[in-house]
Structures are given as C-alpha cells and as structure tokens.
C-alpha cells in the first residue's frame, strides 16, 4: 500500500516535471504580399492581440480563453481579414469561417460561410461547447448563434471604413483572385503551464469568392490543428491548396517524426508549391515541448509571439522582426 502511494506520488511528480512549462502565445495575421502601409497597421494590431491574449493566459492558464481573446482583438481590427474588415464575396456579402480546437481531447468547433457576427471565433467555440457537432455552416450557424444569445449585426457593420486591407476601398467586389487585400486571415496557438494546447483560426476568406465557399481555416487538419501529444498549428495562404495538401496535418506529422517546427512548416509549404504551382502561404506552431515555429514561402507573414519567461513580444511581417515590451 505504502509502495503504491509512493509510486503514484513519484508518478505525479514526474508528470509535473515533464509538463511544467512556460505559457506561450503565438499569432499570425495573414500571409502574402503585405505593403509597408498595411504592415504598420498589422504590427499594431498584433501587439495588441498578443497583450490581450497573454494577459488571459497568465490569469487563467486556459489556452482556449487566450486564443479566443487574441483573435477577438484581430477580429475587431480592420487591419485583418476577419470579423470587422473582412473581404467581400462576389455578391458583396461578408461570409466568415472560424474554428477552435482543444488539443487535450481534440474537441473542436467550427463555422463556415457565416454572416452577421463580429466574432465568428466565439460562435465556433459555442459549437464546440454547446452542440453534438463540430461544424455548422451558413444561415444555420447564424440561427444557432442567435439561439445562444450572440448579437447579430448587419453586414454594413462589418465593412471597414478605413483604407486598410479590409477597408471599403479594397472591399470593392472584384473577380480577381490572390489579391493582397485577402491577406489577413488571423490565427493563434497557445500552450499553458501544464502543456495543454489550443489553436484557433478566423477569416473572411477570399475577395470575390462564391457564395457558400469554405476555405481551409475551419477545416481540422487543413488550416488548423491542435493535439497535446504533438503540436498546435494555424495556417494561412491559398485556402484551396491548403485543403488539398492538408497543410496542418502534414506539419503535425513531420513534428511528430521529430523535425524542428519551423523546418517542418517550410518543408510542407514548399512541397505544396511544388505539387500545386502558384500556391503559397505561412504557418505558426507550438510543439508539445514548447518549441515555437513560424515560417512562410509567400512574400510575407504577419507573425508575433510571447514566451512566459521572456515577457517580450517578438513580431514582424518579415524574418527577424522587432521586439516590444510585454507590459503584462
């Protein structure tokens, strides 16, 4: 009996030792070609987002709360193609995709082609928490949101007035693809002190997309993935190619095989570009051991992260980037 007690005590200790880690939060604000004007807006938005999300992570040690808080800031900002400031569909509508995944039990919630909410990420979380399902789409996702007390807003309230990436000027409906205006899908990955991982992605998708189009963001294994045994991942780029290449799944599988996170990301993205010419993008990750990875093979990726020990925000739209004090 004593032996058993001792054994379980040791087991608890060793688990604690293995899992005791620094909380980390990493976010992205889209990949592609980012003009210097847009980059300035994105940098401000990302630093705000990290500050908000990291405060929640420190206070609650809940990675899901942290990624949601971080995404909220970017959904509120017209510098990103998510929530307020999302790009327009071919019909001049705003249709958004979002997902949250809890890496501990792989529970997930997602919405696709959803209109009339400021924070699709929170509706995705409600899908995870309050339904038997993983993925709700279209007007039905909207009805569900309403039933959960989420305020519905007219599309005009989601269209930004500034000339930022999501500004009205650039939201004029065009049928061209891969415009820089589409840059600005947002994503966040967090790990807490116990090694629990959460990942989230939110986007307005492609300018001029067809009604009902769903991209990679809300699809498990395409744009987003979280598994405490492997890593948390959020990706951004040419959505259709990311779906076909299953970017997040492939990155996870390379990390599981022991590859360095950033190297895994770049390998997968370059493999995709080789198979699907013209497709590019970027990706962020935190591995189960707390290793940070972010890489891209598009011109830019808007990225930012903070580590619990450092309390310094690293951010940029290019390699290297800048640092700022955390203030948390």
């Amino acid at each position: 009996m004593l032996k058993l007690a001792l054994l379980s005590f040791l087991l608890v200790c060793s688990q604690h030792l293995v899992r005791a880690a620094d909380p980390i939060l990493i976010i992205h604000g889209g990949a592609g070609t980012i003009t210097s004007e847009h980059a300035a807006h994105k940098r401000v938005g990302m630093v705000d987002s990290i500050r908000a999300g990291f405060q929640v992570l420190l206070d609650s040690d809940n990675p899901m709360d942290a990624v949601e808080a971080a995404i909220h800031v970017m959904e509120n900002s017209p510098a990103f193609n998510a929530g307020y400031g999302s790009v327009l569909t071919e019909n001049g509508e705003i249709e958004m995709d979002a997902i949250v995944i809890n890496g501990t039990d792989l529970s997930a919630g997602a919405v696709g082609a959803m209109k009339h909410v400021l924070h699709p990420i929170s509706v995705a979380r409600l899908v995870m928490n309050s339904t038997q399902h993983v993925f709700l789409v279209g007007e039905f996702a909207e009805k569900f949101a309403e039933s959960q007390g989420v305020p519905l807003v007219p599309t005009s309230d989601l269209i930004a007035n500034s000339t930022g990436p999501g500004g009205r000027k650039s939201q004029l409906v065009r049928k061209t693809r891969s415009s820089y205006d589409d840059v600005g899908t947002v994503g966040a990955v967090a790990i807490n002190s116990k090694g629990n991982i959460a990942a989230a992605t939110s986007t307005g998708g492609l300018t001029g997309k067809m009604e009902g189009r769903v991209g990679d963001a809300p699809l498990v294994g395409a744009g987003t993935l979280a598994d405490d045994d492997i890593a948390g991942i959020s990706a951004t780029g040419d959505g259709e190619a990311f779906i076909r290449w299953r970017v997040a799944s492939r990155v996870a599988s390379l990390i599981e095989q022991g590859r360095n996170a950033s190297e895994a990301i770049l390998t997968v993205l370059n493999g995709m570009t080789e198979k699907i010419p013209g497709a590019s993008g970027g990706c962020i990750a935190i591995t189960k051991d707390g290793e940070i990875g972010f890489q891209w093979n598009s011109e830019h990726l808007a990225w930012a992260y903070v580590k619990g020990t450092e309390r310094v925000i690293h951010y940029g739209v290019e390699r290297g980037g800048k640092t700022d004090l955390c203030n948390n």
Binding site: G138, E139, F140, E211, G212, V214
Partner: peptide, 15 residues
C-alpha cells in the same frame, strides 16, 4: 468548374 474546393448551403445550390 469552380475556383473553390468546398461550397456549402445555398451557395452550393446556386452553383
């Protein structure tokens, strides 16, 4: 025929 991979709901019916 579509530029996209996945279409849902009314949009899929329109297509």
């Amino acid at each position: 025929q579509a530029d996209h991979v996945m279409l849902v709901g009314k949009g899929a019916n329109l297509f």
